[in-house]
Design a protein around this nucleic acid. Structure first.
Length: 123
DNA sequence: AAGGTGACTGGCG
DNA sequence: TCGCCAGCCACCT
């Protein structure tokens, strides 16, 4: 059984990255460094990008919810992915600033714990 | 197995 | 605020 089924990049790291990205709630975005930190390698921000780059088109991973630390889409526009990401994010009710960047103060996701800017007030 | 590339981040000027 | 350089880690050939 088993066979582990690598299914491509199916390594340990990439596998974990996909899991984290799947944990990103709709209408929310995060940075590669944040995902890398959640998988246990805060310095592997590029590794996250590589993993997403190897991500299949039929995957259930919302890769479009992952952006750089500037809240800007930094993916190859040649493939049209850049426009696609913006479209998908817009469909998630994500707001873009006049500068062309995403308002991280409004959609920044800090992980499964929450870490939200307007919460934590315990009653 | 080894080398090169990159969907990144942080520090400086 | 923006642009450039160096460092790190993972993926691909």
């Amino acid at each position: 059984m088993s066979a582990l089924s690598p299914g491509g990049p199916g390594n340990r790291f990439a596998r974990r990255v996909y899991q984290v990205v799947r944990s990103i709630p709709e209408g929310r975005v995060t940075s590669y460094g944040a995902v890398a930190a959640l998988v246990g390698s805060p310095r592997a921000a590029r590794g996250v990008g590589a993993a997403l780059n190897a991500l299949p088109p039929d995957s259930d991973v919302p890769w479009w919810r992952v952006v750089n630390r500037n809240g800007e889409v930094t993916i190859p526009s040649e493939l049209g992915l850049r426009a696609l990401q913006r479209t998908l994010l817009a469909a998630e009710a994500v707001t873009f600033l006049p500068s062309g960047r995403i308002d991280l103060d409004r959609h920044a996701w800090s992980g499964p714990d929450g870490g939200w800017p307007d919460e934590g007030n315990g009653t």
